[in-house]
Amino acid sequence: MLKAENLVKIYETGFVRKRRITAVDNVSFDVKEGEVASLVGESGSGKTTTAKIVLRLLPPTSGSVSFKGRDVWKELKTREQLVDYWRKVHAVFQDPYASYNPFYTIDRVLKQALRLVGVDRNSEMERKLIEEALNYVGLSPEDVLGKYPHQLSGGQRQRIMIARCWLLKPNLIIADEPVSMIDASMRGAIIKLFMNLRDDYRTSIVFITHDLGLAYYVSDKIMVMFKGRIVDIGAPDEVVKHPQHEYTRKLLESVPTLYRKWRWV
């Protein structure tokens, strides 16, 4: 479904003294239909940069991304092709608040999604689909419709983003830290919704997180990123029980455990 090959991204910063940062360093991976692949690493390891390249939001310095056999950076040219790509490869971000316009009620993000799939404004179909989408993510329409983003909790806002995914039925969702700003008590609920999309529609998911514990429960495949490179890759049990790379071990040791107290030295 998705194939990233030898992605490199070098940022140049500074006006006087040019500094080059290799944010992504020769990254290759693929995601199959219905597969959940996690990209795990600490802050600054290059996860979001990789996601932006895949989403065709940020050009790579070199390397290629192909989706269903077409080169995303070379072959998609017209506005229509791009809009179609972003419908099929859809992003869900960390801060659901940033995905909303604070001046409009949340109905708007759902209605806009319906425009993309050709459902008429103010039609009976529109009303019915929105209701179904909200039910799918466990929200009752009367609780959330007509509300402004700030009137909802982070969990509710993120659920609505998933309702939007349900309306668009993308082939691939790129979820960048979708639960890191959500209370621990609600993370499981959001994660289950992603899993449902995968089970019901064979949606593929690239799940980005700094928390290897979380990745352990959502993924078919875990890719550990460190300083722009993928240093460890494998099934969750392999990576967590038999980490290959020193860094994977460090990442694992940083995840707070509930039933075991760390020894402070």
Binding site: G188, L212, G213, L252, V255, P256, T257, L258, Y259
Partner: peptide, 9 residues
């Protein structure tokens, strides 16, 4: 609701 990589969980 905690998701930690532990057998109990």
């Amino acid at each position: 609701s905690v998701l930690t990589p532990e057998d109990e969980v």
